[in-house]
Computed example of a mutant assay.
Amino acid sequence: MKKLSIITINYNNCNGLKKTIESVVNQTYSGYEYIIIDGGSTDGSVEIIKKYADKIDYWISEPDKGIFNAMNKGILKATGEYCNFMNSGDCFHANDVIEKIIKELDKDIVIGKYMFGNLSYPWGRTSDSISMLDFVKGGISHQSSFIKITLFENNLYDENLKIASDWKFFIDVLIFRNCSYKNTNVIVADFDATGISSVTSKLNEMERTKTLKEFLPERIYSDYVRLAKSDSPLLELTPLFNKTNGFQKLIFNIVTILINIRTFHLKIKYFLKKF
Rank of each mutant, 00 (worst) to 15 (best):
D38S: 07
D38F: 00
T42M: 07
D43Y: 11
D43H: 09
G44H: 03
G44P: 03
S45L: 08
S45N: 06
V46N: 08
K50W: 03
K50M: 12
K50V: 05
K51E: 15
Y52D: 05
Y52Q: 05
A53S: 15
A53N: 12
K55Q: 14
I56C: 07
D57L: 04
W59E: 01
I60R: 09
S61F: 07
P63Q: 05
P63L: 05
D64H: 06
K65T: 06
K65G: 10
I67C: 09
I67M: 14
N69Q: 02
A70V: 01
M71T: 00
N72W: 01
K73N: 10
G74P: 04
L76P: 02
K77V: 02
T79V: 12
E81W: 01
E81R: 03
Y82D: 11
Y82N: 12
Y82A: 13
N84C: 13
F85C: 10
F85R: 07
M86E: 04
S88W: 03
G89D: 03
D90A: 08
D90W: 14
C91Q: 12
F92D: 02
H93N: 15
A94V: 00
A94L: 02
D96R: 06
D96V: 01
I98N: 07
I98C: 06
K100F: 01
K100Y: 00
I101T: 11
K103A: 15
D106R: 11
D106C: 08
K107W: 02
D108Q: 06
I109T: 10
I109M: 12
V110Y: 11
V110I: 14
V110K: 07
V110N: 09
I111H: 08
I111N: 00
G112V: 13
K113R: 15
K113Q: 14
M115T: 08
F116L: 14
G117A: 11
L119K: 15
Y121N: 05
Y121T: 04
Y121S: 04
P122K: 14
P122Q: 10
P122N: 11
W123C: 00
G124A: 10
G124V: 13
T126V: 15
S127K: 15
D128W: 06
D128V: 04
D128I: 07
S129V: 12
I130Q: 03
S131H: 07
L133R: 14
L133P: 00
L133W: 14
L133C: 10
D134Y: 01
D134R: 07
F135H: 04
V136L: 14
K137F: 10
K137M: 06
G138R: 01
G139T: 13
I140Q: 11
S141F: 09
H142K: 02
Q143K: 11
Q143Y: 13
F146L: 07
I147L: 13
K148N: 11
I149S: 09
I149T: 15
T150Y: 13
T150D: 15
F152T: 02
F152I: 01
E153S: 13
N154R: 13
N154D: 15
L156T: 03
L156Y: 00
Y157Q: 03
E159K: 00
E159Y: 02
E159S: 01
L161F: 10
L161I: 03
L161S: 06
I163R: 04
I163Q: 03
S165W: 00
D166R: 05
D166A: 11
D166E: 15
D166W: 14
